[in-house]
Simulated assay, not measured.
Amino acid sequence: MSTKISNWPAATPMWVDLGVDDLQAAKAFYADLFGWDFVAGGQDGGEYSLAHVAGRAVAGVGPKQDPDAPTVWTTFLASDDVNVTAKKISAAGGELLAPPFDVMESGRMTLATDSVGATFGVWQAGTHIGAERVNEHGALCWNELHTRDFASARSFYSEVFDVSYQDVTEDGLVYSTIRRPLDGREVGGIQHDVDVPSGTPNHWLTWFASDYVEGTANRAVELGSSLLMPVTESPLGRMAIIQAPQGEVFGIIDAPRIGE
C-alpha cells in the first residue's frame, strides 16, 4: 500500500479515467468489484466522479464526451509543464487530440496519441495530484503500453518524457520497463505485443491490484464481464485481463507491490 499526498514526478503514469455510455451501471460494477466509493468531481465537473478507496482518489469515471468513442481506460502521465510536453509530443511524431487546457483548479491537461497511435493523457497537477492511493486492492498498480512497433514507441516516450528503459529478459517476451528521469524508478512498461488483434489499436493497459485475483475475476464474470486472459500464474503473482460489460479492458494482479 502507498498513499500519495504530493505531486507525482514527471513521466509517472499517475491517473486513469474511464468514459462510459451508462455511468450508473459503471459505478455499480466497480463499486461491487473493488469496493469503490464515488465523490463528485467538483463544481462544474459535470457528472465526472472520483472513485475512492479508503477516502482517497484512485480513478475517475464519467460519461463519454463523444458517444462514438470506444469505452476505454485512459492512462495519464505526469508533467511539470503540459504546454512544453505537448510541443514535444508533436515533434516526436504524436498527435494532440485536445490542446492543453485547464480543468478548473484541478490541473492542466492534454490528450494525445503517440507515434504508434496509442491514446494517452498528460496531467499537470493543480489541486488534484492524480492517484492518492496505489498498490492495494482496487487501486492502480501498473500501466503498460502494448504495441506492434516496439522501437518507435520506446523512441517516442524517451523523446517526450526523457525516460530510460530496463529490458526484461524472459523467453518469448519483448518488454522494457519505463524508468522516470527523476530517480530511475520503474513506473510502467512497454511490451512488443504480437498478439494485438488486427484492427485493434496499440493501447495502454491499466492494471489494478487485487487481494484475491481469482475471486475478483470470478466476480467480474458474474457481473457480466468476460476474461480475455484467464487467471494465470506469473513471476509477479496471479493475474487476469478482464473486459467489463461496457467493453473497457483492464488487468488485475496480485503482485509484490510496486512503489511510487
Rank of each mutant, 00 (worst) to 15 (best):
P201M: 08
T3P: 05
G126H: 08
V213P: 07
G126C: 14
D149C: 13
F156M: 11
D114G: 14
I241C: 04
V231P: 03
R56P: 08
A153D: 00
D167S: 11
P197L: 12
S152I: 13
P9I: 10
G237W: 00
A255G: 09
A10L: 03
T169L: 05
L140R: 01
A91Q: 12
A244H: 01
V163E: 00
V20K: 07
E159I: 10
I258C: 01
I241Y: 00
S115M: 06
A51C: 15
S164I: 02
I5Y: 02
G247H: 03
P181L: 09
A91H: 05
R185S: 10
Q124R: 10
D102F: 06
P100S: 08
M104C: 05
T206D: 01
A10P: 04
F156N: 07
P63T: 14
Q166I: 07
D254N: 15
E233K: 13
K87R: 14
A112M: 14
P201F: 02
D68C: 03
D66V: 14
P181S: 09
A112R: 05
D211F: 06
E47N: 14
V174F: 01
S234N: 02
D193Q: 04
K64W: 02
H146L: 13
K64N: 04
H146V: 04
R108S: 11
S2M: 11
V84E: 10
A112I: 08
R133K: 14
